[in-house]
Amino acid sequence: MARGRGRLNSIQLLPKECSDIVIWAAGELQAANRPQTDIYKEFVIKLEERQRESRGELDIRIPSFSSFNRYSIDLDATTREMNEAREMATAVLAGLDHNDGDDITKFVGEAIKAAVMATLRAHKGKLGPKHLFELASTMRMIAMAQATSSTHRQKIEAELAAKTKEAVQTVAKAKGLSGAAANEILDKILGVSN
């Protein structure tokens, strides 16, 4: 038996020419300003209009209300999960120095690693080789991004230290300061001594 994302629901089976109507319905459901039954009725009307406009070229099978309801429940669950993740990220990022891209990269990397591990736990023994390869590739890319971020930060720090050292030596020479005085200034600025 082939493994995959499972059977498509009736909303996923709608022709791509109906994507704008599905997006409209999702927006209305998320806005929660109207009853779901009203949104469904308008959804059906829009699909029927699209069918008439296509003059029979599109095979639009109107999803049942129960399918629409399941879609609404799934959409709501996904939105809640995304909102929770965003709230958690906001809370954690509030404690980080936003000028330190390395901290943020580490946080994002760890969050993605946690999501990958949660996926592995949730689908224990049910993931095929393709999915395992994709998850492994994701983990590898995260590790590379984190290493690149650290390497980039170290390179910038080294360049800054070199420029600072050069500037202090230039000013020290112009002001007639000794080498020892220049080194003391560098120690105080960067913790670098010569």
Rank of each mutant, 00 (worst) to 15 (best):
A136K: 11
Q154H: 13
T151R: 15
P129W: 07
S137T: 10
K155Q: 14
I156E: 07
A136R: 09
M141W: 09
A145F: 04
T138A: 06
L135E: 01
F133Y: 11
S149M: 01
A136S: 13
L132P: 00
Q154S: 14
E134P: 04
L160V: 07
A145Q: 12
T138N: 05
L160H: 08
K155I: 07
L160I: 11
A136V: 00
K130T: 11
K126I: 01
E159G: 04
A118I: 00
K130F: 09
T151D: 10
E157A: 14
Q154N: 13
H152V: 13
T148K: 15
H131P: 03
Q146L: 03
K130L: 12
R121M: 08
T148G: 13
T119P: 00
T151I: 06
A118G: 05
M144N: 12
T138S: 03
A147S: 13
P129C: 04
L160M: 10
K155P: 00
L135T: 01
E159Q: 12
M139Q: 12
R121W: 02
L132G: 09
A143G: 06
L132C: 09
E157C: 03
A136N: 10
R153V: 02
H152D: 15
I156Q: 06
L127S: 01
K130W: 08
L160W: 03
H131W: 09
L160K: 12
T148A: 15
G128Y: 03
T138M: 09
T151Q: 11
L160N: 06
A143Q: 12
K130C: 05
M141Q: 12
L160R: 11
R121D: 12
A147D: 14
E134G: 09
F133N: 12
L132S: 03
K130E: 13
T148V: 15
F133G: 11
P129T: 13
H152W: 08
H131C: 11
L135Q: 01
R140H: 08
A122M: 13
A136C: 07
A143V: 02
R153W: 00
L160T: 07
I142G: 03
A145L: 14
L127M: 11
I156V: 15
I142Y: 05
P129I: 09
L135V: 00
A147T: 14
F133K: 15
K130N: 11
E159C: 02
A158C: 02
G125T: 02
Q146K: 12
E157W: 04
E159M: 08
A136F: 05
H131R: 15
A147N: 08
A147G: 10
G125P: 02
K155N: 13
S149D: 03
L135S: 02
A145N: 15
T119Y: 07
H123D: 08
E159F: 03
A136Y: 05
L132K: 07
T119W: 01
A122L: 12
